[in-house]
Amino acid sequence: MENQINNNFTLNEEDNVDLKQEIRRYLRYWPWFALALVVTLVSAYVYLRYAPRIYETYSKIKILDESEGLELPTSAFVFNRSNINLENEIEIITSYRIMERVVRKLNLNTSFYEEGTIQTSQIDELPLIFDQIIKPDSIVSYLSYKLTVEDEGFQITNLKTEKTFTFKEHSTYSSNHNLPFNVELDSVTPLSQIIDKGFIIKFAPIKSTSLSLKNKIKVESIGDLSDLLKLTMKGESKELSEKILDTLMTTFDNDGIRDRKLVYQRTVDFIDKRFEFLAGELDSIEIDQETFKQKNNIVDIATDAELGLEQRAQSEEELFKLENQLTLSELLENSLNTNNESDLLPANIGIQGIFQEL
């Protein structure tokens, strides 16, 4: 028992000795550890200070079920599940057709950047009056221009050809040039705020800009039973990202409205054409029926029976009148044959039609 205690004590003493040796071994390199810590902190500060700030902007959109209230309850309705295919809606939102409309509406193939001491960051718009001359569809290659605001005017350099243009009085409208844009000092922005600042103006083709925007926007559903979609975009300019997402949702909504109107219009056109066809068919059938009746002397029993009764009553009445006139005529003839020449003839015995015809 005593030997076991002594052995344990010896092991613990050896462990303590090993730990101290390890500490002494690495303690000799403490200047390197301190230097690595300082370098790490300085690098983190420089990165956070001068790295471009990327903002994440997101928005939510609700997809409406067009069949809601029009169909009988199904199992999806009983278990509170949506009938909307969100995968299809996501594909429509991120389609090239929708992205191209957003690019054209916001003129995203023209971008602006502000040069800083260390970095160049993207901005929503220039603090100047900017008038683009070149049409978006005419941009077939990438173009870049640097605009520097000086005391007496603007200096614009084509970064591809390195050709420089100088404009006085802070306006390009009064000079002849072949630049794809015009700029002028804005009366709202004081010159002192933008003096000696540099701005980059870039032009890109519509197709490449649309594909780039498609890659920047992420669309995902919120939950399994939800009909909400979350649109997320990362960018250097919060204002520009908000504009893009708002325009994207509006374009998607208008696209759905346009599609529904087209479907309704096609349905109405089909019904109108079908109605005209059926009306023509009915008219043709009635004409053929009337012709067939005339050729085969066929009448409608119910209608013709009622018409026959009326005509028969009128015929019997006319026959009775004619027979009455005929009887009176015979009496008058007998009277003429039997009476003498000096006898008077009967007056107003009721013979009218005969004398009228005479």
Rank of each mutant, 00 (worst) to 15 (best):
T110Q: 03
L326T: 08
N3T: 01
R312I: 11
L322V: 07
Y26P: 00
I298M: 08
E323Y: 07
L64S: 10
E68K: 10
N182S: 15
Q325R: 09
V140C: 00
T250M: 15
T172F: 04
H170P: 15
L147S: 04
N7V: 02
P31T: 02
G350E: 00
R266P: 01
V140H: 02
E91S: 11
T189V: 15
G69S: 13
A347I: 13
T117M: 06
L128G: 12
K216G: 00
D300H: 08
V149Y: 03
N158S: 07
A279E: 02
I195S: 05
T74Y: 03
K160N: 13
I206N: 10
T94E: 14
F270T: 02
E330I: 02
T189S: 11
F320V: 07
T40R: 01
M1I: 06
L282W: 00
G280C: 04
K295V: 05
D246V: 04
R258P: 01
R81A: 11
F199N: 11
F112Q: 12
L248E: 14
H170V: 07
Q193K: 13
I257M: 14
M99T: 03
N215E: 15
E239M: 10
E152D: 12
N80D: 03
T161V: 06
R24Q: 09
L147E: 02
E71D: 05
K105F: 00
N12H: 12
D343T: 01
L262A: 02
E68N: 12
Y173G: 03
L108S: 07
E100P: 04
I351H: 01
S138D: 08
M249L: 11
I61D: 12
K216A: 08
F9P: 00
H170D: 11
G280W: 02
G223A: 02
H170A: 07
L41S: 05
T161W: 14
P52V: 14
Y173T: 04
R28M: 00
T232C: 13
H177A: 11
N85M: 05
K146W: 03
G235Q: 14
L35R: 12
G153V: 06
T251V: 15
L128P: 08
I194C: 04
F277K: 06
S210A: 15
E13D: 09
N16S: 15
E220K: 10
K20I: 09
V149L: 06
I298A: 07
N8A: 12
F181K: 08
N8K: 14
K293T: 07
E22D: 04
Y264T: 07
L126W: 10
S241M: 15
Q155I: 11
I118L: 04
R81S: 12
Y29L: 12
L147C: 02
N7S: 14
D18T: 08
S226D: 06
T327F: 10
L336P: 10
F33L: 05
I5H: 12
R81H: 06
Y264S: 11
K135I: 00
L179Q: 05
T291Y: 09
L228K: 07
Y145F: 14
E333W: 07
N182W: 14
N7D: 11
Q155L: 11
D186G: 03
L307C: 01
Y113H: 03
E220F: 05
Q265R: 04
Y142G: 00
S82P: 11
A302W: 09
Q356E: 13
S241T: 15
I298V: 14
T189K: 12
M233P: 01
G153D: 02
Y173H: 10
E71Y: 02
I134V: 04
N178A: 13
I123H: 01
I271K: 01
F203T: 08
